[in-house]
C-alpha cells in the first residue's frame, strides 16, 4: 500500500483540494474570481491517485477543470487561489485565471479552454520526452466529453504508432455540461474503443485513490520500458454544476447524494486508513484544522496580492524582439 506518511499525505491532499474548491466556489459566486471556474469536488482521487504515482519530473497536461490536478502536482493553494483572482502572485502571474494554470518548468503543461486539447498537448510532451531521450512520462488528462472529439483519437493514434510515453487519463465524471455520457458514447465502453488502437486500456474506479495510483504506476513502468501509451478510464463524479453558478436540472438530487454518501473518495480512503490503524481521530482532526488554516491563508494571500502592473501587459506575449 505504501508508507503511512505517503497515505496520510494523499488523504490530506484530497482534503485540501476539496476545501480549496468549496471555498473558491463561494468566492466565485461573490464575483471575486475573474472568468468563473469549474469545481472538481468529488474527483479528488483521480488527481491525487495519478500524481502520487509520478516522479516530480513527469509532465501533466490538463483541461478546463484542472484545480485538482494542479494542486496535486504540488502547486500551492496560495498561488492557485491568487491566479483565480488574476493576481500578480498567481501561477500564471495573473494572466490566466482558473482555466490556464500551468508552468512548463514545473512539469505542468497547462489547462486550456478547448475540450480535448489537453490530451493532445500531453501527446506532444510525450513526443518531446522521447526525442530528448528522457526517462519521464506525460499524463494527458481528458474529460468524458473530450472523448467524443476527433483530436483526442488522433493523438492516441500517434502515441500508439510512435510508442510515446503517454498515459491518457479520462477524468470521467460522466457528464459533459448537461449531457450524460451514455447518451453520446457509441459502443458504450471507452476502454474498448481505445483498445482498438492496440494499447492497454482499462476502466478503473476513480473514487479509489489507491486503485488509481497502482494503475498509473503500472502504466508508467510500461511506458518507461519503451512499450508506449496506456489508456485509463477513471470513473468519477462531480458534485457541483459544470461551472460555478450553474442551475442544473439534468440530474437528480438523489443521484448526487448517492455518490456523495456512498462513494466519496475522501470518506472511503479515510475509513480505510482508520480501519487499518494508520489514522486516529486526533491526527484526522489536526489534518482538518491544518487544511482549513492553509486555505484561509491562501484566500488572504490572494485577496491582498496586487493585480499585474498594466505596464507589463506585453510580458510573455511575444519575444519582445520585434518591438522597439
Amino acid at each position: 500500500m505504501g508508507s503511512r506518511e505517503e497515505m496520510l499525505a494523499m488523504l490530506r491532499m484530497m482534503m485540501m483540494i476539496r476545501n480549496f474548491e468549496e471555498t473558491a466556489d463561494k468566492l466565485t459566486l461573490r464575483g471575486k474570481v475573474s472568468g468563473g471556474m469549474h469545481n472538481s469536488s468529488g474527483q479528488e482521487a483521480v488527481a491525487v491517485g495519478v500524481i502520487s504515482a509520478l516522479a516530480p519530473d513527469d509532465v501533466i497536461a490538463t483541461t478546463h477543470r484542472s484545480h485538482h490536478h494542479t494542486l496535486a502536482k504540488g502547486f500551492t493553494a496560495r498561488e492557485v487561489m491568487a491566479e483565480l483572482m488574476t493576481k500578480a502572485t498567481g501561477v500564471a502571474k495573473g494572466r490566466g485565471a482558473s482555466m490556464h494554470l500551468g508552468d512548463v518548468s514545473r512539469g505542468h503543461f497547462g489547462g486550456n479552454g478547448i475540450v480535448g486539447a489537453g490530451m493532445g498537448i500531453g501527446m506532444g510532451a510525450a513526443l518531446g520526452i522521447k526525442m530528448a531521450g528522457d526517462k519521464k512520462v506525460a499524463i494527458g488528462f481528458v474529460g468524458d466529453g473530450g472523448m467524443n472529439t476527433g483530436r483526442t483519437w488522433e493523438a492516441i493514434n500517434m502515441a500508439a504508432i510512435w510508442k510515446l510515453p503517454l498515459i491518457v487519463v479520462v477524468d470521467n465524471n460522466q457528464y459533459a455540461v448537461e449531457t450524460f455520457i451514455d447518451r453520446v458514447t457509441a459502443g458504450g465502453d471507452l476502454a474498448k474503443r481505445a483498445s482498438g488502437f492496440g494499447l492497454p486500456a482499462s476502466t478503473i474506479d476513480g473514487q479509489n485513490v489507491l486503485e488509481v495510483r497502482d494503475a498509473v504506476a503500472q502504466a508508467r513502468e510500461y511506458a518507461l520500458a519503451g512499450n508506449g501509451p496506456t489508456f485509463l478510464n477513471a470513473l468519477t463524479y462531480r458534485y457541483y454544476g459544470h461551472n460555478v453558478g450553474e442551475k442544473g436540472q439534468y440530474r437528480t438530487l438523489e443521484e448526487i447524494e448517492d455518490w456523495r454518501s456512498n462513494r466519496d473518495p475522501i470518506d472511503q480512503f479515510a475509513a480505510r486508513l482508520f480501519s487499518e490503524g494508520h489514522l486516529d481521530q486526533a491526527t484526522f482532526d489536526e489534518m482538518v484544522a491544518s487544511v482549513d488554516a492553509e486555505i484561509k491563508d491562501a484566500v488572504e494571500f490572494a485577496e491582498n496580492s496586487p493585480h499585474p502592473d498594466p505596464s507589463e501587459v506585453m510580458l510573455n506575449v511575444d519575444s519582445g524582439k520585434l518591438r522597439g
Binding site: L29, G35, G36, G245, K247
Partner: peptide
C-alpha cells in the same frame, strides 16, 4: 443573501 455571479461576464 447576495447577488451571485452566474455568468463569466
Amino acid at each position: 443573501v447576495f447577488i451571485p455571479a452566474l455568468g463569466m461576464a
